[in-house]
Design a protein around this nucleic acid. Structure first.
Lengths: 234, 234
DNA sequence: TATGATGGAAGTGGATCCAAAAGACCGACC
DNA sequence: GGTCGGTCTTTTGGATCCACTTCCATCATA
């Protein structure tokens, strides 16, 4: 029973905590979500849990079969590719808008986040697979978040978030972190994005960002194609 | 008490019906949604209504203040502009993808939908403001839906739907239909889109579609800036 | 031995109950 | 006469209860 982070409506809090469980892999893909179990874990009755599950359902993270309960949704590979194509377009737009709006402070933040990734990559290359540490994931997220913020369009940010929230994050991290070559490419692409933004080159920023997201999507798609780990079979 | 369209889970059905009420203006923007009233109207208890409201909340159509109930969300003008900028990008992508995929049958459908709009516009010009008839709205929706289908990316369609579902549809129709000049522009832009798609010109299709959505967004934004009608004050 | 029926266990979905919060109303007091 | 305070009403939010569906295991029978 985790402590309640008291902020606002209880059901939103429950939903957030269930989402977090799914995102970090505690609740594996395909695993059935028992209302009673969740209620007990959070120390509440089933009612708020049910409402939270509805929220997650309409967010697309879980699937609810009538009278059969909810399961963490298992994305199909082609679905991942499609989603990432959309995300690429949106993040491309974000980059384009950011080019003319980003502040020096934000540019610095981008370089710092990428530096964290670079260092993690160098360490990981030595130690072999510190696979997808939370810090790495966070730095990656932050990088994209900063670009979104610089784009100064809350709706855009929200749509991008929605896409990300539709796929368990730990899977993305595992996929990304597992491939040394791709890790390097990832960092290099970030550098290109920062360069384009620094030069205030909207076209280039958009194009590079789009390519970046597309290539991440391809990797993730490939991962799902041979998925097995962290997927619940039952 | 409307008859239940029996299909699948009850709560989804309730949510759909509330959404429909909001979309067609029966439930005005800003109006508070009483759980008891909705439950009585649909002949069910408050429980499924509450879950339905949660779904609508996470869809962004309504806003729930803790202990104070839900209200139909009132979009701010700048929010509308931002959302339409995103939508423009997504529909632009849809048009781009559609250019290489669209079938002759679908092109015919596009021309037919636009013909319906043109006829309605001509009749409306005579009779003065048959403002936003359901048929017109439907034809407009169909046009965009066909393009989305041709794009063959369910995720893309879904994201676009989500944006549309975030703003009461009747408002959009009223705004669009109220302006004769814009009605003409609308039809003309549709023609250009069909031309570009027929020519399989992806770049042009994307650009024209984006401009089309942007200009619709500007009109809608302007409407919201001087909104009054169909907005609940209390 | 394989197969189909039957009974029970588990779990979801809807209804109802109760407590707590917010708003309205009303009167007293300054 | 205006404002502060208290009570009463309305409405939400969480808990509990019950009915119905689904799944599983056991058992009888061909």
């Amino acid at each position: 029973m985790t402590p309640q982070t008291d902020e606002g409506p209880l059901v939103d809090d429950i939903a957030a905590r269930i989402r977090a469980r799914i995102m970090n892999g505690e609740l594996a893909i395909g695993k059935p979500l028992r209302q009673a179990a969740l209620a007990a874990e959070f120390g509440v009755s089933r009612t708020p849990v049910r409402e939270a599950l509805r929220q997650l359902q309409s967010g697309g993270l879980i699937e609810v079969q009538p009278n059969r309960g909810a399961v963490v949704r298992v994305p199909t590979p082609w679905e991942v590719r499609q989603a990432y194509e959309v995300r690429a377009e949106l993040e491309g737009l974000a980059a384009r808008r950011a080019a003319s709006r980003i502040t020096g402070r934000q540019l610095t933040a981008l370089r710092e986040h990428n530096a964290v990734l670079r260092e993690a990559a160098e360490r990981a290359a030595g130690e072999e697979a510190a696979a997808g540490s939370p810090a790495t994931t966070a730095a990656n997220d932050c990088f994209h978040t900063v670009v979104c913020e610089a784009a100064d369009n809350p709706w855009l940010s929200r749509m991008i978030d929605r896409i990300n929230e539709s796929f368990p994050r730990n899977v993305s991290s595992l996929a990304l972190a597992g491939d040394e070559r791709h890790r390097q490419l990832n960092i290099r692409q970030h550098e290109l994005i920062v360069e384009a933004l620094t030069a205030r080159d909207a076209d280039r920023a958009q194009e590079v960002m789009r390519d970046h997201v597309i290539s991440s999507g391809e990797l993730l798609t490939a991962w799902y194609e041979r998925r097995s780990q962290t997927v619940f079979h039952g």
